[in-house]
Amino acid sequence: MARPQQWADADVLEFVTLKAGGQSYCIEITQIREIRRWSPVTALPQAESAVLGVMNLRGAVIPIVDLSDRLGLGKCDASPRHVIMVVAVGDKTVGLLVDSVSEILTVSGEQICDAPAMGRGDVPNSILGLISIEEGMSRILAPSVLLPSVLREVA
């Protein structure tokens, strides 16, 4: 299986793996700003269902995206056990509601497999590649899928 273009074989990369909608995903560590406990958000009018609202991150107003809902895996019933991953996408900062954050993976570029072209909807665009891990595989999330859809053209 061919490797995605953006990573060279020799690159050493670090990913943070997380669980959303019962599946394992990962995001490159350089994109992650911080990980916080879930706290109630302020709902936004006319927002898509995956955008839960906005949260105060030390004075900045950031939108919170339900990653499971965004990936079509059903709404997440947020509770204090859930986690918010604050990620930077371009010049925007977004909080992702996920089930849990698992570990940091260190992989080389050659260990990353291309995401097979299949399925419909967001899937082909939302997964950049796959990494094999002990309990199966982790899917590398494309940055654009993390943003609320109102921002996606921008990113």
Partner: peptide, 20 residues
């Protein structure tokens, strides 16, 4: 800054309890 314009809403603020 991090989201977009919302019709009917001009901006946000942070209240005493830290919520928006």
């Amino acid at each position: 800054g991090n989201y977009g314009a919302i019709e009917g809403i001009s901006a946000a603020t942070i209240l005493g309890d830290g919520r928006i």
